Computed example of a mutant assay.
Amino acid sequence: MAWFAAQPGQVPGEDTCLALIAGYVDTLGFVALFGLFTAHVTGNFLLIGAALAHGGHGLLIKWLAFPAFVAGIVFARMLDNRLLHREPPVRAHALYVLQAVLLAGYMTMGLLAMPVTDADAPLTIACGLLGAAAMGVQNAHGRLTTRAVVANTVMTGNVTQAVIDGFDLLFSSNDLATRQVARGRLLRILPPVAGFAVGACAGAAGFLLASFWALLLPLAALCVLAVLVRRTGTPEVGT
């Protein structure tokens, strides 16, 4: 099954699960924290520009999300550097643990900040920054350990490639090699795209039903991934 296919050294469905986590956490932050994107920073820059043009509030948390996101990447890099002598699954496990700790801090700070009515309140800002740092770690994870086959936090590139591969699959009938490559890549790309979309819907619903307690779901998923990847004991993709 393409949804659960794994490369050597990967947990089956790992990319799809990470994409689901990214969509879930990003949308929950957007709904809960006045339009803050935690999984990627580009959207925050756009919202800052819109707020400057038309007026608005909540600029500080969006400005600070960028250095928090960068800090998450730096923490991930520092941790990975300390573990370069260890097996790749150990390094991946450590990064999952780091992300889970930051995500738990995000949830805890959000619960302490409830009800979130002021985007510039210190607890609200601290909540958003921990969320951005957690997703910075996830963005760094794939590049540091080469576990990720496709991007799992931002879907624009994946959707673009999926459309190109879909076109080649449909209209390159005389080029068998091109069609085979397109089909294989499409089977790797589509599950994370679908996972991100499902996660986005679930994140919004989760916050409406359980406020920041809803972050227990992606937190549990990260803990499961941390355990499973530690048990793989085989080199990762590209190593």
Rank of each mutant, 00 (worst) to 15 (best):
M1D: 15
A6H: 11
G9C: 14
Q10W: 02
Q10D: 13
G13M: 01
E14N: 15
E14D: 10
E14A: 15
D15V: 12
T16E: 12
T16G: 07
C17Y: 12
A19M: 08
V25Y: 00
L28E: 12
F30T: 00
F30H: 02
L36K: 07
L36M: 00
T38E: 06
H40N: 13
T42R: 02
F45Y: 07
G49Q: 00
A53R: 12
H57Y: 02
G58S: 03
L60S: 09
I61R: 00
W63Y: 10
A65P: 02
A68T: 01
G72I: 04
R77E: 12
M78E: 14
D80I: 05
D80Y: 05
N81H: 11
R82C: 15
L84V: 12
L84D: 13
L84A: 15
H85E: 14
H85A: 14
E87R: 05
E87K: 04
A92P: 10
A92K: 15
A94P: 11
L95P: 13
A104F: 07
Y106S: 02
M107N: 02
M109K: 03
A113M: 04
D118G: 10
D120F: 06
D120T: 14
P122L: 06
L123E: 08
L123T: 08
L123H: 11
L123Y: 01
T124N: 10
V137T: 12
N139A: 03
L144V: 07
R147I: 14
A148W: 04
T156N: 08
T160Q: 06
A162M: 13
A162R: 07
I164V: 13
D165S: 01
G166N: 03
L169F: 07
L170I: 11
L176Y: 04
A177S: 09
Q180F: 06
L187N: 09
L187M: 09
A200E: 07
A200F: 09
A202N: 01
G203Q: 01
A205H: 03
L208Y: 07
L208E: 12
L209Y: 02
A220E: 00
A221I: 08
L225H: 06
V227F: 15
R230N: 10
G238C: 12
